[in-house]
Simulated scan of single mutants.
Amino acid sequence: MRVILKTIPAALLILASCNNQSKQNQTTNADTTETEQLQTPANNAIPYVLAQNYFVKNTIGEDRNGIHKIETQAAFDELFSPAATMGKDGKPTPIDFDKQYVIAIISATSDLTPTIDSIAVEKQGEEIAVTYKEVLGEKQSFSVRPVAILLVDNQFQGNLKTEIQQEI
Rank of each mutant, 00 (worst) to 15 (best):
T109W: 00
G90M: 07
I103W: 04
P114Q: 00
I95E: 11
A84W: 00
Q100P: 00
I116N: 06
I105D: 05
I70S: 04
P82H: 03
R64K: 12
S118F: 06
P94C: 08
D31R: 12
Q39W: 06
I105S: 04
D31F: 08
Q26D: 14
F80I: 11
I67K: 03
N25G: 00
A120S: 13
I103A: 09
Y54D: 08
T72D: 06
I106Y: 07
Q26W: 02
K123W: 06
E62A: 14
N44R: 02
K69S: 14
Y54R: 08
G125E: 01
T85S: 11
E122Y: 06
N58G: 09
F76H: 06
T27C: 00
E78A: 09
S110Y: 10
G87Q: 05
F76E: 03
E62V: 11
Q24S: 04
M86W: 04
V102T: 06
P47W: 04
R64F: 12
I67A: 12
D31C: 05
A84K: 13
F55C: 07
L112S: 14
D96H: 10
E126M: 00
A120T: 14
T115P: 00
F80M: 10
A108L: 07
I128Q: 01
K91H: 05
I105A: 03
I103L: 09
T32G: 00
G90K: 05
G66A: 02
